[in-house]
Amino acid sequence: MIVITAPTGHIGSQVVQGLLEAGAPVRVIVRDPARLAPGVADRVQVVVGSHRDADVVGTAFDGADAVFWLVPADPRASGVDDAYSGFARAGLEAMKGVGRVVGISALGRGTPVAGQAGYVTATLAMDDLIAATGVPYRALTMPSFMDNVARQAGPIGSTGVFYGPTRPDLRAPAVATRDIAAVASRLLVDETWTGVEEVPVLGPEDLSSDEMAATITDVLGRPVRYQQIPVADFRANLVRNGMSEAMAQGMADMATAKNDGLDHGVTRTPENSTPTTFRQWCEEVLKPAVL
């Protein structure tokens, strides 16, 4: 039995589909079963609740061969440590009884800025707590997601501009969530691995935001440009949109760390490069969203 947390999110929902297509038995933890993808509820075991609840996790993890662990960081949390390690503490004891855990993490460990990287620093601390339980653990360490660009499909379509705090000329890895899900699914069904390791998932190439804009322009057939916004303004926008001061600062710290090389600590290899190019993702995901 494979347990999936956050099964309605971008990554978790694709992990569920991948496992079901492979014929694996799946159990999900979900607050609202109605939010599961059509047809999924009838093909999986459903435990209703949050994986921040120790009783829910204890029930869901009972007899589990593997667990997919993803923390949906609460944008209104009191701080990044509470959003990650605080959330995970309820599940740590239950993890000791499962066969293996695959978690969603982030690049940055070992870089000079890893200790001041907001969300990423908190994520790495959570990984350490999971590893300390003794459960075999694979932390999938990711750069930024291509899919984050789709959140700005509206501005791209209406004004031809997308925004962010990243330096426009900074070339960095980016990965499609469907490739993350594929790696996670493969590890979840593989019963041969043990121990604790980080597994970088880098996408196929490094691109700058300006290069992404050029690709989007080509795919959409209309001019699109990237506009950098100051980190302070980025933080203020998050607060205006309902994020707590502490979590907004965590996002700002992560953005600053990425500009300072957070995602450049891992050498790209064929093993850690995934197949979906940014152009392919634009054609198959972003273009339909914009149009």
Rank of each mutant, 00 (worst) to 15 (best):
D233P: 01
A214K: 14
G203I: 03
I229N: 07
V219L: 05
P200E: 08
V231Y: 07
D210N: 14
V199G: 07
L202D: 02
V201A: 10
P223F: 02
P223S: 07
L202Q: 01
V231S: 09
V224G: 04
M212S: 04
P204V: 03
V201W: 06
V199H: 13
Q227M: 08
R225E: 15
V219I: 05
S209T: 06
V231D: 12
V231Q: 09
G203N: 11
R222D: 14
P204H: 03
L207Q: 02
Q228S: 09
A214L: 09
G203V: 05
V231A: 12
T217N: 01
L202Y: 03
I216N: 10
G221F: 09
M212P: 03
P200D: 11
G203R: 02
P200K: 07
L207N: 04
S209F: 13
P200S: 09
D218T: 15
T217A: 02
M212H: 02
T215A: 03
M212N: 01
Q227T: 15
V219E: 01
D233H: 09
L220F: 11
V231E: 13
A213K: 07
A213T: 10
A232K: 14
P204E: 03
G221H: 11
I216E: 09
Y226R: 09
D218M: 00
P200A: 10
E205K: 02
Q228P: 08
G221R: 12
R225A: 12
E205S: 10
I229A: 07
G203M: 09
I229S: 08
D206H: 09
G203P: 05
E211P: 02
